[in-house]
């Protein structure tokens, strides 16, 4: 491991333990490649076939609408088996994993996610037959203009 990477990774770990919540809003980008490798087991990851709807500018990182559409015939032989969401700037980058199958009929998920600041959101789709595709989307997360009671609490 290079020195720089080491500093980044330990910094992220220490940050989680020691920093107050407000400071974590500025927490560094984490390397999510190990998380992706955990899913793929090292198999190749292709691009294309995934549509991600996220606002270009999210006005509150507590609740950002997200819609994922993965192209697939969704048959027992050829379907999407799981959809993973990663947010590299979140203190815990694994946001969610959804398991689906041929009985889903359509590989489409809508949800709302927390984004700790402006960052790249990654969607990884796992297909039957150990195939993978990935899509990354940039989201700008803005913060509130007025000082708020909620900030005093954190």
């Amino acid at each position: 491991m290079k020195r720089r990477e080491f500093l980044v990774s330990t910094g992220a770990t220490l940050g989680l333990a020691a920093l107050p919540a407000a400071a974590q809003k500025f927490q560094p980008v984490q390397d999510i490649r190990p998380l992706i490798a955990q899913v793929t087991g090292g198999a190749a990851v292709e691009s294309g076939g995934i549509e991600v709807e996220l606002p270009a500018i999210a006005e509150n990182g507590n609740s950002v609408p997200m819609r994922i559409k993965v192209e697939s015939p969704m048959t027992p032989q050829d379907h999407v088996s799981a959809i993973h969401i990663f947010a590299e700037r979140n203190p815990r980058p694994s946001v969610a994993t959804f398991h689906l199958g041929a009985r889903s009929g359509r590989a489409e998920i809508s949800t709302r996610v927390r984004l700790a600041g402006t960052q790249k959101v990654t969607v990884l789709a796992a297909y039957s037959g150990n195939r993978f595709r990935m899509k990354q989307v940039d989201v700008l997360v803005t913060s509130a203009a007025c000082l708020d009671e909620a900030m005093a609490e954190t």
Binding site: I85, N90, A96, I109, S110, T111, R112, R114, L115
Partner: peptide
């Protein structure tokens, strides 16, 4: 923890 409070999920 990255899923919003009062989780919303829609699927097919």
């Amino acid at each position: 923890t990255g899923l919003s409070a009062n989780p919303y999920l829609a699927f097919y």
